[in-house]
């Protein structure tokens, strides 16, 4: 094991963490403001990736693809909110789980219907191809580096939006007491649609950015959705700061676990056996992390104590 390889893995972990943040920020906002558990968030991620791949494939422009991803995911989010989700706010969680599960079925199979079962590919723009040279002689793919920076920029923008703008104030007020801000004359249903569309756009952006590294296919959203749930549980539901810290934590734990655990077991076992146990344990590492957090803080690292 050498230091350069380790730093590369740390960067990979950061990249995963930043993408998870884009997903979990929307989920946690939607839960914090509307009290809704949205399983279909992964579908919005998928819609973003498909829109980006389709538009970038047709026009050859990655930037247009990203724009399409944001627009398509936000539009799908707003549409779903107005037609379905709105009826679920005062239902119990079971109804929310089921209705959004039904939405996943509709979105996934609908996408398969439109685009077929074969994965699409989204090309990295030429300017971002190849490695970037970092200090200490580290070579790291330029596109992944861009993802990390873009993700951090979006995170900073989101913090500013929530902390400094009028909309942000309303969103926070909606989290604190929705009856009160409705009584103060804020159009609460418009605010809800806006928050939902914002969360959807973030998920769509994540899908488009990751779509260029992985293949764009039906069902790509659900594994990320479940990771985002783990993030939210660790960070504390409703807390954007918690989601950020937990995203990075989960990204690093997962990536470094896969890298380090086989090596760690290799120090006292024969290599093939160590690899086997290390890989199996690494696939469970983030869930073990989640369980550990739960034992000490059942409402997550940044969650309000109940």
């Amino acid at each position: 094991m050498n230091a350069v390889l380790l730093i590369e893995q740390v960067l990979n972990g950061l990249q995963l963490g930043v993408m998870l943040f884009l997903m979990s920020a929307g989920l946690t906002l939607i839960f914090g403001v509307m009290g809704l558990i949205n399983l279909a968030h992964g579908s919005l991620y998928m819609i973003g990736a498909f829109a980006a791949a389709a538009v970038a494939g047709a026009t050859g422009s990655f930037v247009l693809g990203l724009g399409a991803a944001l627009a398509a995911a936000a539009a799908a989010g707003a549409l779903v909110e107005v037609t379905v989700i709105r009826r679920l706010y005062d239902r119990d969680h079971l109804d929310q789980v089921l209705a959004t599960f039904a939405l996943i079925l509709i979105f996934s199979e609908g996408t398969r219907w439109l685009f077929g079962s074969f994965p699409l590919f989204l090309d990295i723009p030429d300017a971002l191809r190849g490695p970037a040279s970092l200090p200490l002689g580290i070579e790291y793919p330029r596109y992944r580096l861009t993802i990390i920076l873009a993700g951090l920029a979006v995170a900073a923008g989101l913090f500013l939006l929530i902390a400094k703008t009028r909309i942000g104030i309303r969103i926070r007020a909606g989290e604190a007491d929705r009856e009160m801000i409705a009584a103060l004359g804020v159009d609460i249903s418009k605010l809800y649609t806006l928050v939902f569309a914002l969360g959807a756009a973030l998920a769509g952006l994540a899908g488009a950015l990751v779509g260029a590294i992985q293949s764009v296919q039906v069902g790509m959203g659900e594994p990320v959705l479940i990771l985002a749930f783990v993030v939210i549980v660790i960070g504390g539901i409703g807390s954007i700061r918690g989601a950020f810290v937990a995203s990075i934590l989960v990204g690093l734990t997962d990536t470094l676990g896969r890298f380090l655990l086989p090596i760690a077991f290799g120090t006292f076992m024969d290599p093939s056996q160590a690899n086997l146990i290390g890989t199996a344990l690494a696939s469970m590492a983030i869930y073990i992390l989640m369980a550990a957090v739960l034992v000490f803080r059942p409402t997550g690292l940044f969650g309000a104590a109940t």
Partner: peptide, 19 residues
């Protein structure tokens, strides 16, 4: 999982299943 309730419980059971 039962240390938590509501949405946390849903997400945690989901996560353990995935594990």
């Amino acid at each position: 999982s039962l240390r938590t309730t509501g949405v946390y419980f849903i997400m945690i059971t989901l996560a353990f299943g995935q594990m």
